[in-house]
C-alpha cells in the first residue's frame, strides 16, 4: 500500500527538515507511532501502537538524505510490516513556506498483524496521513498539537467521532486522558 500526502508549513525548509530529521519527533504527531528511538547515525528503532497489532516494532535506516531537501528511509531486518518512506522539502512559491511531500509504502503481510494494519487504515487510508501532517504543521507553526474539548487527546483523537461533547473535561477524564 502506498500513501501520499502533502502540507505546507510556514517555516524555512532547513527548519522543517531539521524537525523531521530528529526522528524521535515523528511520534509526537504520527498517530500510529508510540516511539521512535535513534540508535545510530542512520539507524533507528520504531514502535507502533496497538492499532497496528500488539508489539509491532522494527528497525529502520536512512537510505538517502539531502540536508534541507529530502529524507528516505526503509525498515531493515525482519520487520512485521516492512515499510519505507520518503519526505521531500520544497520551498513554496511564497518564498516563506516549505511544501512537505510524503510517500509511505507498507508491505502488508497476511495473518493477524496484516488484518490489524488493514483495519487501522480502514476505508480511507489517506485520512490518517493527512491528519498526521496537519499535526506536524501545528507543532511547527504553533508549538504543539491543538486540543479542543471535543477532541482533547491530540494525536490520539483519530476516528474519535462522534467525539466527547464540547464541554470541559472533569479531573477524572483529564487524569485518564493523560495516560498514554
Amino acid at each position: 500500500m502506498e500513501l501520499t500526502a502533502a502540507t505546507t508549513v510556514r517555516k524555512p525548509a532547513t527548519e522543517v527538515y531539521a524537525f523531521w530529521r530528529d526522528l524521535e519527533n515523528l511520534a509526537t504527531f504520527m498517530t500510529h507511532l508510540e516511539q521512535v528511538r535513534v540508535t545510530g547515525e542512520r539507524t533507528s528503532h520504531w514502535v507502533a501502537g496497538a492499532p497496528f497489532g500488539e508489539d509491532v516494532e522494527w528497525d529502520a535506516e536512512i537510505v538517502d538524505e539531502v540536508p534541507g531537501g529530502r529524507i528516505a528511509w526503509r525498515s531493515i531486518g525482519n520487520a512485521d510490516v516492512p515499510n519505507a518512506g520518503t519526505v521531500r522539502f520544497v520551498p513554496a512559491p511564497d518564498g516563506v513556506s516549505t511544501e512537505v511531500h510524503v510517500v509511505l509504502v507498507y508491505d502488508i503481510p497476511g495473518g493477524a498483524v496484516g488484518k490489524a494494519v488493514a483495519k487501522y487504515f480502514g476505508e480511507e487510508p489517506h485520512q490518517q496521513l493527512d491528519d498526521d501532517l496537519r499535526r506536524f504543521k501545528q507543532v511547527l507553526e504553533t508549538g504543539e498539537v491543538v486540543r479542543s474539548d471535543g477532541a482533547p487527546w491530540g494525536k490520539r483523537a483519530r476516528k474519535e467521532f462522534p467525539q466527547r461533547p464540547a464541554q470541559p473535561l472533569s479531573d477524572a477524564e483529564l487524569a485518564k486522558g493523560a495516560e498514554p
Binding site: 491528519d131 496537519r134 507553526e141 498539537v145 491543538v146 479542543s148 477532541a151 467521532f161
Partner: peptide
C-alpha cells in the same frame, strides 16, 4: 486559520 481546528479532517 489552518491550525486551530482539531477536526479539520471533518471540515475538509
Amino acid at each position: 486559520c489552518e491550525n486551530s481546528n482539531p477536526n479539520a479532517g471533518i471540515a475538509e
